[in-house]
Design a protein around this nucleic acid. Sequence first.
DNA 1: ACCGTAGGTGACACCCAGTGCCACCGGCAA
DNA 2: TTGCCGGTGGCACTGGGTGTCACCTACGGT
Lengths: 203, 203
Amino acid sequence: MGIVTETMVAADAREETRARIEQAALDLFTAQGFEAVTIDEVADAAGISRRTFFRHCGTKADAVWGQFDGHVVRLEGMLAAAAADQPVLASVYAAYVEVNDYAPADLPMLRQRMRLILTEPALLAHSQVRYADVDRVVAAHVARRTGVAPDALVPRLVATSTRAAATTAFELWLADGRITLGTALHQAFDELAAGFPSLRLPG
Amino acid sequence: MGIVTETMVAADAREETRARIEQAALDLFTAQGFEAVTIDEVADAAGISRRTFFRHCGTKADAVWGQFDGHVVRLEGMLAAAAADQPVLASVYAAYVEVNDYAPADLPMLRQRMRLILTEPALLAHSQVRYADVDRVVAAHVARRTGVAPDALVPRLVATSTRAAATTAFELWLADGRITLGTALHQAFDELAAGFPSLRLPG
DNA sequence: ACCGTAGGTGACACCCAGTGCCACCGGCAA
DNA sequence: TTGCCGGTGGCACTGGGTGTCACCTACGGT
């Protein structure tokens, strides 16, 4: 029991330190640009050494991405818990909406993160690596539900295109201050799931 | 006239040097892995200096990506030349198929490139930056044809999801030695354009 | 034939991200 | 007190990428 408590405390302290570093990094990156800020400057701002920065954040990009792993795990859990009678596409849809249902207090920092990720080339590049994890999880879910291999066309395609829809929704939300993230996700998924109905309207 | 000829010759020689460097890089990366090979080794293999490598290829990743800019330009041209009475999605579909219609002689090198790009994390990351250019071109086309802003939902979504379909087709083609790249593209696009009909078959 | 120029090249110095290693310091248990 | 252990900082090193300078070569003009 004592061990558990101590472990939790240590983990919390570690989280807190990491959060402090990330906040310092986000502020500096936002103010001066991702490439223009060196790790030394971030470390100085966070009151730690350069070496400690890397121990906590791994890479410069990870300082912006933060605990994205947790998102993937949560998404995986939601997909696993999806009702079996729900259409596959609907379950992916719902999981994406739910995993991106942020508390209002978290939205400003999310905006800050996403603006950097979608603006800075180095971070945009890094996103592909993160997305690959998401795609694997979604493709595995689709494969399980449809009884085909995870690396077959449909599971892969559903994974990549739904994720494309989600990122598009993020871009829209970021560019347009009025639209809700949930609304943007719904619009994008509805459009995708129906085969782009709004393109057929004029013709 | 003389100037034009000289310029062309110089450009050709430059292309040739670049092609030689790229081939040396591809071979080394394929044999030993992207990260395990240093620029010095590539430069040595190509018979040039480290500095000259960067002058010709820009970055390590660009040595693998090669003349991708040309692809984007060609895609843009095809979209611009698409028949006005053709459905928008069909024009994007056709352009993607056409721009990826490689000569049989080019297929081995394409396989080599794509295997690296889809396998090596650093190259996968870089792909997002290249894809962004493609997406911009496609989104602009869709926006022009539908009369909405290029950064609106539908143009962006069409761009990202069709590109997702194309990359999925590439993955399939790479993993399965029997399927044609064109066939894979057709399958992916048909599935996407119809709103994933094969998911609806069982239900 | 001579000279000036421009482009390609190589060598060098530098910046910065990322890693391995070691030494230190704090707390905690025996 | 002693020994251990996790976090930390310092240091050195690798490797990608860039700026700068000197050189050399090929070409055009005189």
